[in-house]
Design a protein around this nucleic acid. Structure first.
Lengths: 410, 410
DNA sequence: TTGACAAGATTCACGCCTTAAATTAAGGTG
DNA sequence: CACCTTAATTTAAGGCGTGAATCTTGTCAA
């Protein structure tokens, strides 16, 4: 949360409060915002007048009247700016642009080959970005660029990326990208950006304390406390996949034993199925197809069903740990594997966790399935930029300075 | 963090900033505070003048001069107020009072019998409190009362206590206590208050992201994010003891299987020792003696040593989970059993987690032993009151209103 | 058609805040 | 004693949010 010290900070915060309401809540009136923000109607008028003047907000008709002056509805001006989100994936780079209402206005995909050196990725991003900017007709409206990467992003003035999947160790990706563009850049772990998207526009919507569990080849979690992404001291919080659930259990690809990922990661699930059914399963992009095949098979195959049910049980224990440690209002099962598995495992998980409510009397935990596909990484990355803008009360960052924001706790 | 909306809130926040600096940092000068808070020197002068006027702060000599006007040192006025902390334990109730400099100025202990009904506890607290207030010469200076209880405190306007150890289900303890006193009351889980004490005055000092692991009969954790106690949605975050580390493992007293507590809780450790050595161990207050006996025995007994080493390994896995999920700067092993076990297990845990640093490159995690004994529950409870006062910029809560603060996220 | 009514929106005076700059205070040094 | 350095205070200026008063804009009943 921003620290306020001067009256200007106060104003910025209140602008942010109002803008956020409009951004996340859609169209509302001044009165209702005055109520929900606890600001006086005078202040709301003031701030809204400013935002209208600047073009960040536009009027959108009136509420139906019932005997008195109807409230004028307001909403964010979609044309006010554009957020760019970049999903640096293992097989391709996806670049998308969203207007201020978060509807997609441009999109590009660049397949990646076998080599994932920083140079290759940076060049690919540069090309794709140029393409997207061309589609947008220039960089005028672009507020900033969010980048989701498959690895840990260590915060600090100059963020460093550790991406084992790419063989990256302390790659200063933002620094490298700055040669390509002078737009402000935010960088974050891809799972976390996906969680952010799910939180704002998906199944996490409306909650302040939620854990978005992300199941894919890797297993992670994006934790939201008080509506804010929890990053920890070095931005690597939420490494759910490498928590131990069976001491001395299966070997995980991280080297340790008994990690959750070694039980509910997509690779591990398919592996078990392969072993028990003497099937051949594939890794990489084809894993998703195989997972679907497993789910299909579970209708008639006892082996497949058993694999799924085991997974559900492990998953339930993992979720139980999240619940006990974070005490969220809601847990969302997301990620491409999570969304696929969901229908088959959700009931088991819910049943398993019902007992938990005995010890957490106030909590009637709800567990939901993610609503956004794996494409949400780019959306989430763009959302991070939006979040920055809202935090600063709708002021765009000056691009000349080429400010780099680290993925650091605010 | 407090939400600021008006200029008055701004002032309150800045008062809090300065007061907190003095409270936690000891004596400092105006200049150095201006630097550390990023406030202008004019504002610091202003605020300090107010605080001096009100008696919250006093001057404390000057810095040694070197050629220029020496800075006047300031510190909190110990006599400005008194915080009362109450530790509602399983065997006794401990009530302590601390002045504004957090030195203990009064103390009372009331043994509890076998019955722990709310009535008995409330009466006992009332008697002890009267005694302490008598020692203090009245309630004039008392700012508020913090209460640490052995159970979950569900937040809300009227906090409810769930304490299985007492057989309590949704006991409105604060409401009951208000019949005894009209002083402001803060209530929180005892482990969390202990963590708070460790954070401000013990091994957690100086960090903003830390996990205080608490080992006793029960096992829990107090999690601090950005310097603030993390409570979760219903105030029951940090239930570390009931996270699964062995699926289908030992039965825990909570009913589930494989909970961490079933492996590293004091009861479980002694149980294992008893079983393997055909010794008789005791529960309750005598458990601490038995744990010491176990540690002593481990010098010569292979069985005892094995029990300890196993515990260390389980503990290491538990800590690993905390690190992976919360990414703290520091982990503190506290609680009466933790502090006892510490010297014998710390190296094992450190060695075990060294591998973790490979995946968390930026983190060179440090693990420390708690510095405060189990008596810290009362101190921590008093600290919670202090925290409230600091958050409100040094304003005391009006007692007439008999405001009850729930243990709710701010 | 008109007047009363209700509630949204705006205006304004007021008190409060922080700050930069100017000024004063306090100690050492030569 | 003049001079230098740094601490602390004062002053004037610019902003902010608020409550109260006022203006605006619909509906509805007569």
């Amino acid at each position: 949360m921003a620290r306020h010290e001067t009256v200007a900070d106060l104003r910025r915060a209140n602008r942010g409060l109002i803008l956020r309401e409009l951004f996340l809540g859609g169209t509302t009136s001044r009165v209702s915002m005055a109520r929900s923000t606890a600001l006086s109607s005078a202040t709301v008028t003031n701030v809204v007048a400013e935002l209208l003047e600047e073009g960040a907000v536009v009027e959108a008709g009136t509420e139906p009247s019932n005997g008195a002056r109807p409230a004028v509805l307001l909403r964010v001006n979609p044309d006010f700016g554009v957020f760019v989100g970049i999903d640096v994936g293992e097989t391709k780079i996806r670049i998308e642009a969203f207007d201020f209402a978060m509807t997609r206005v441009a999109r590009v995909e660049c397949p990646l080959g076998e080599t994932h050196t920083p140079e290759v990725v940076v060049r690919s991003v540069g090309e794709g970005l140029a393409d997207v900017l061309h589609q947008l007709g220039g960089t005028n409206k672009v507020v900033g660029i969010g980048v989701g990467v498959p690895g840990v992003v260590a915060g600090g003035a100059e963020p460093l990326v550790y991406a084992p999947a790419f063989g990256w160790r302390s790659v200063p990706l933002v620094k490298l990208l700055r040669a390509t563009t002078d737009l402000p850049i935010v960088i974050e772990n891809g799972a976390k950006t996906m969680g952010q998207a799910e939180m704002w526009f998906g199944a996490g919507r409306g909650t302040r304390h939620a854990v978005i569990a992300l199941l894919g080849t890797g297993v992670g979690a994006a934790i939201f406390a008080n509506g804010v992404l929890y990053r920890g001291a070095t931005s690597s919080a939420g490494e759910w996949g490498h928590t131990t659930i069976v001491i001395g259990g299966r070997r995980c690809r991280c080297g340790a034993r008994g990690c959750l990922e070694a039980y509910v990661g997509a690779g591990s699930i398919l592996d078990r199925w392969a072993r028990e059914s003497r099937r051949v399963v594939r890794v990489g992009a084809a894993a998703e197809d195989d997972l679907v095949a497993l789910l299909d098979a579970s209708v008639h195959s006892r082996v497949a069903l058993r694999v799924i049910d085991e997974t559900a049980r492990y998953l339930a224990e993992g979720v139980r740990n999240l619940v006990n440690l974070f005490d969220p209002e809601r847990v969302v099962i997301g990620g491409w594997a999570g969304v696929r598995l969901g229908p088959a495992v959700l009931d088991t998980i819910r049943a398993h966790l019902a007992g938990e409510s005995l010890r957490h009397p106030a909590a009637r935990l709800d567990i939901q399935l993610g609503q956004l596909g794996p494409d949400a990484v780019a959306l989430g990355a763009a959302t991070l930029v939006a979040d920055r803008v809202l935090n600063s009360g709708g002021e765009r960052q000056p691009r000349r300075l080429s400010r780099v924001y680290a993925a650091s706790p605010t």
